[in-house]
Design a protein around this nucleic acid. Structure first.
Lengths: 96, 96
DNA sequence: TATCCATATTCCAATATTGGCATATAATAT
DNA sequence: ATATTATATGCCAATATTGGAATATGGATA
């Protein structure tokens, strides 16, 4: 049962464990974007971007909003800053 | 080249994307532990624990120290607190 | 040296992830 | 109704991850 928490957390990390999905998050840090904008900016096929977005949404990292035929995605993590600052620290230490 | 940063970050998240490895990190949050203590506390085969520790070490999340025939592992992340607080926030929001 | 204990490595089958391609759906416009 | 545009889904081969079982290594002790 307590093990469940580790499984849930692992799933969030799994969603983050892909360069394309990290690039999407970085792009969304700039603000809400529709799928087409993300596809234009990242050099990947539309279906791949779509699947990546869905995976990020499933674990609660981003949210979507439909408007006409467009779907707009945006970050749901309030603490992206702290989160990625820590990551950067780890990377910096790793280089030393 | 900038893509490399996403690959590196993804590798850190990949190391964290496993319940056993998260449990190990949680256990190490209590302080430095030798492999045998970790094996005793977590219900997994010694080789699995060993491999998990090596994976965490490879990405710079933990460090090791040999003393006789024992190897002691400890956290190398200074900012575990912030990091996991954010994660908990995401999990909480996800439930709502 | 022989043996014991702690840790790491290798091998493996089952399972999951990746990312492209083709296709489906759903909204909008003509 | 048909065509067009935006997004999602299904399928697939290549590749990676998982975690167990057996085995190897290396320090300590008798």
């Amino acid at each position: 049962m307590n093990n469940n928490i580790y499984i849930q957390k692992a799933q969030i990390f799994k969603a983050l464990s892909n360069p394309v999905r990290l690039e999407i998050i970085d792009f969304l840090a700039d603000g809400e974007k529709c799928v087409c904008e993300i596809v234009e900016n990242l050099n990947y096929e539309q279906p791949h971007i779509s699947k990546s977005l869905i995976k990020l949404k499933e674990v609660g990292l981003i949210k979507d909003r439909k408007e006409g035929s467009n779907v707009y995605y945006s970050l749901k993590i309030c603490c992206v800053g702290e989160f990625f600052n820590c990551l950067n620290k780890i990377l910096k230490e790793c280089i030393d």
